[in-house]
Amino acid sequence: MKNNEPNCMVEIRDLHKHFGPLEVLKGIDIEVANGEVLVIIGPSGSGKSTLLRCINYLEEPTSGEIYVDNTLVNDRSLKHKAFQEHLNRTRCKMGMVFQQFNLFPHMTVLENVIESPIHVMKQDRPTAISKAEDLLEMVGLAAKRDNYPATLSGGQQQRVAIARALAMEPSVMLFDEVTSALDPELVGEVLRVMETLAREGMTMLVVTHEMGFAEKMADRVVFMADGFVVEDAPPHEMFTNPQHERTKQFLAEVLK
């Protein structure tokens, strides 16, 4: 059932995901309030990325409900075509940033950012460009607007990817291990952009191994293992006084 809390931005109810015989998510319940930063941590294979991908319907949930901004994402009562249109609309409310950046290599930085505003949101070109320039300014890449992605560093590409997602004016941002593919010295510049966003009040779901970011920026930290949410706590509690044995083990490993 849908929670009637008006401040709720993302709500996940009893989410299950199977890949064939393998059950990756075994009943996930998570709520994220408007403006909240939720950091999801856990060992690899725990289902963190699958969870984010289900929210955006890049993976089809096997069962359960996902609400984003009071809209049921996996509304299978809709017929095929209506569902696809519903999905396209709903996805516009979510910005997703990927581990591998996934910038469009055949387009310049600016073209990457304005592509969807123009072709999906039907913004006129000058409006889209001026907004894109503001966003590129925000991520510190205004000077690179006419470059092709291949000429940028990983950190720069990831910042463009963030700007591209923001250009759709999403209500929530999903970050899927966005610093994992970066050289260590490039991680900071991406995290700083995310911190700016968090301070501006963006609702964020962040899957990451950057415990420093979690500690500093998260309102809540969720620890996942083996397809379950094991622990859900404010960062201070999570990192200083974890309740579950599994959490303690994991944190002992990563904070070593």
């Binding site: 955006n56 890049l58 696809q84 249109e85 396209n88 609309r89 996805r91 516009c92 979510m94 910005g95 997703m96 990927f98 591998q100 996934n102 910038l103 469009f104 290599p105 055949h106 592509e115 969807s116 072709h119 999906v120 949101m121 990817a161 591209r164 997602a165 759709m168």
Partner: peptide
Amino acid sequence: VHSGQMEASRSLGMSFGLAMRRIILPQALR
């Protein structure tokens, strides 16, 4: 063409056809 390209396109609200036309085919062409 890397599957991430289609995923990124869809995550930006593009329909399958639009993503194919604007993102995938131009890269496949090369």
